[in-house]
Design a protein around this nucleic acid. Structure first.
Lengths: 344, 344
DNA sequence: GAACGTCGTCGAAGCGTTTCGACGACGTCT
DNA sequence: AGACGTCGTCGAAACGCTTCGACGACGTTC
């Protein structure tokens, strides 16, 4: 492995000059620069990351903390991850993957040993134990999610309250007056993950504002859980003409159940999903959906981290506005009754 | 941030002594060790990763290359990832996440700049372009998958040929003589990912050996793709009494389709799936399945990497034997016909 | 033409570890 | 009692880079 001194010797300059060619921190004449670059190419020189980190106290590595729990939506997480990795690479950074189950210790380990320049933390809970630890670190951090109170840490997330509101307003606009919310799994609520509650509160507010009849039930993301949840909805709000489904995993079993039940979407029942675009499009019925912009959120989180590292001022909280895309799963209530099989 | 010298001063010893306490590479008296450890704890000392890497040429970081393509099975990938991260942590290593789309360049970047001690590469194709690059690195690598030929690189994977054979033998044992294979998406075959072909070849061999009538079709993992695939099977092998499904994403739509069609599992049609256990169990019908042991494979890959780093000798190829678990989706052909709705 | 900037380069001092050789202090063996 | 190991510790030299101050060599400016 050639070192910077080897390159310097080959180019007939000093090591510092090579360093300045690499970093661009001081002007170097075009000739010298060319010679140095030729030497670098010829020798196949790559600066030693550790040496660099030691001398510059910059690692060009970001830590990303992912949940490995199974009750979270794996494909969505993967979208976040790829977005973060891609965005980080665009800023010449790499990503060190930590799992949430290492908890506070993991964060402190990588931060204290100076393995990373900044941390991005997913699946943040409303009152997350890791927050105090993050505040104590020398490195800045960015949360994907929105804990309670003013966290004093940069946060990026979808505006889930707005999303809940928008989904319901859309159905109201189509004439629906009785709507049920199929929420995430009970475990998500119990854990105190903020987005579930925020979505629900947006939903509930609009429900009150427009005087709608609504119910909301969490839903275990299994065939049985879905059946259960639908049964409860039928019991509590038998006149429901539309469903808002904030539970990606439940989507497919739910649609299957409805079909097996002879309830057609959208003729007998309208559905608005909250999920990534590709999921909405891949369903048997192309679903009208509020997008979960994992890619944007992940990218913004990295941008925020870069901003913090560069000393730029960064908004403490960034909530991305929801966008609802109309597809084929929403109709007017009762529109399909004349052709539909009856349903009590 | 305290340094090793600060610790040494506080404990009244030299920095090298502190280092030896930390690494255990030389004997240190119990007293001294205690004093040093007290000082470490008191000052909250954490060795600087970069300095360590520079001095020892060991980073304690593994690179993990994941595919971020969407035609691969995201939850399974995530299982590999968590297995690798967990196993790596158990060996006091961290994981740097690379995406496959950085290709050869990404591998060389992290390897040449000495960011990692070893590389683990997922989604290896039969004739993978990255293989020559990996061979050229100073760091060892481990493949998850099995390329063609003797790769000269350590490989770990499930024995997919054995899995295909086992699935078909199981159905044969239940009396099935006409069986269709629902394969992965065509993209997987085209890409040359080895496991699809290996599974198919195991399936085909047993088919010939037992003189069964079989067909095999790839299957796009969408509602439409599944319908399509089932239609083709009905056309090519109308007497099929069982399905082997080597396509996790197709599973749910497929079962939904069958149900909508009035074909009950297992009374009218038996199904053997190839998928992780939790997926098989979470389906509307608990599926008899050949397990995809992502956790084991990921762990083994890390163990292999550690072995290589420690200079132990490691088998070049490790194929994990498949395990089939019986659940509720296999019956005898025709067993349910007396109660079933007729089906041509 | 003297004073002053700017530009391009160099030398050297770190950055915080690990590791190798050295070296007392002891115990053990003959 | 002398030679010889072993044990526990130290000092110093890397490891490969960045960065700061310095310093010629040139234009500019009055």
């Amino acid at each position: 492995m050639p070192t910077i001194s080897d390159v310097a010797r080959a180019a007939g300059v000093s090591p510092s000059t090579v360093s300045y060619v690499l970093s661009g921190r001081r002007p170097i004449s075009a000739q010298t620069r060319a010679r140095v670059q030729a030497a670098i190419a010829e020798l196949g020189f790559h600066p030693h990351a550790g040496a660099r980190a030691l001398a510059s106290s910059r690692t060009n590595v970001l830590a990303l903390v992912v949940p490995l729990r199974v009750d979270v939506n794996v494909p969505v997480i993967m979208q976040f991850v790829t977005a973060v990795v891609t965005a980080a690479r665009a800023h010449n950074h790499d990503v060190l993957l930590l799992t949430k189950d290492e908890g506070t210790a993991g964060l402190e380990r990588v931060a204290h040993s100076t393995m990373v320049d900044a941390l991005i933390v997913m699946d943040v809970e409303r009152d997350d134990l890791r927050l105090p630890a993050l505040r104590g670190l020398r490195q800045p951090s960015v949360l994907i999610g929105l804990p309670d109170g003013a966290p004093g840490i940069t946060c990026v997330d979808l505006d889930f309250a707005g999303a809940g509101a928008q989904a319901l307003r859309h159905l109201h606009g189509h004439g629906h007056r009785q709507v049920a919310l199929v929420g995430p799994s009970p475990a998500v609520y119990q854990r105190g993950t903020g987005y579930a509650g925020r979505f629900l509160s947006g939903f509930t507010e609009v429900s009150a504002e427009l005087s709608l009849r609504t119910v909301a039930h969490p839903c275990e993301p299994s065939a049985a859980g879905v059946r259960d949840c639908l049964a409860r909805i039928d019991a509590d709000l038998p006149g429901a003409t539309a469903l808002v489904v904030h539970n990606e995993e439940a989507l497919l079993p739910l649609l299957a159940d409805l079909r097996a039940d002879g309830r057609r979407v959208p003729q007998d029942l309208s559905v608005v999903a909250v999920c990534p675009r590709d999921v909405a499009v891949g369903m048997p019925v192309r679903l009208t959906s509020v997008d979960i912009p994992a890619h944007e959120v992940g990218t913004m989180a990295v941008e925020a981290a870069m901003g913090l590292l560069d000393g730029r001022s960064v908004a403490e909280t960034t909530l991305l506005p929801p966008t609802l895309v109309e597809r084929d799963s929403c109709g007017r209530p009762g529109a399909g009754s004349e052709i539909s099989s009856s349903h009590c």
